Computed example of a mutant assay.
Amino acid sequence: MDDILKIDDLKKEFLSLQSFIYFDENDFLREKCSDEVALQKVIRDFEKAIFEGTNRSQTEELIFLYGTIGNLYRIKGEMKPAIEVLSKAVELSEGNKQISNLIRLGEALKYADQYQQALSIFNAVINQCKQEHSQLLDFAYQHKGKCLLELEEISEAYECFQKAMDLRVRKGDESLIDSTQKALNFVKHHGGLE
């Protein structure tokens, strides 16, 4: 029971951090955090939970911890630990959780300027999503589009964002639609497609 409360507390702490995370329109819509102290505290708390062995037999908890901490390292700009921890999350997971962690790993590789490796992951994830009829296909297209945007492959990026938008409109999730609309607007404005 103690472990469940601890994980729930970590989830609440992570959610409270979301108010400080934003997409930097001056840096290809990369995720950043406006409160480095809060970000570091959440990372420390997640690391502590892993090192204390928060019920190590609970694979689901480890996947959550590794996936989240890897994502936070990426946002903080620490790519080496981000890639290492996200690779562990990918190894432990399967199905949609693996797809989600592969997308996160692709993002970390992109932030580390390893664009071709990131694109390989995004392409593999897109294929996996199509084969498994995963509801995460829109995320795969969105993140591939962001990678292509940084490579200045503007029309290909726009095409990926448009595919993500079509899927997200079908889902009807306004926050996802808004996120993709920002990406489409960014491409139109900065990519000369206006």
Rank of each mutant, 00 (worst) to 15 (best):
L167C: 02
T54Y: 12
G145A: 06
K171E: 00
D35L: 07
L86V: 09
H143P: 14
R30P: 15
L137A: 00
I69G: 02
Q58D: 15
E159Y: 00
E78W: 08
S175H: 09
L109G: 09
Q40M: 04
E84T: 12
Y73D: 09
L119D: 08
F186P: 00
E132W: 03
L39E: 04
I121C: 09
D2A: 14
M1S: 10
R74A: 14
A124M: 10
A140V: 06
I43V: 05
H143F: 15
F46M: 01
N123M: 08
D113L: 11
D45A: 07
F20L: 07
L109W: 08
T68V: 02
I103Q: 06
E194A: 11
I177P: 00
S93V: 07
H143I: 07
K97T: 10
Y22T: 12
S120E: 14
I69Y: 02
Q117D: 14
E78M: 13
L5G: 07
E91L: 12
G192E: 02
K88G: 12
L65R: 04
I126Y: 02
L5T: 07
E31P: 14
F186A: 02
S155I: 03
K188H: 01
E60A: 15
V187K: 01
E156R: 10
E84S: 14
E159D: 12
Q131W: 01
L17W: 02
D8S: 01
S93R: 06
L149I: 06
I121G: 09
G191Q: 01
K12P: 00
Q142L: 15
A89F: 00
A89V: 02
L148R: 10
Q18W: 05
N71F: 07
Q18N: 05
E91I: 08
E31H: 14
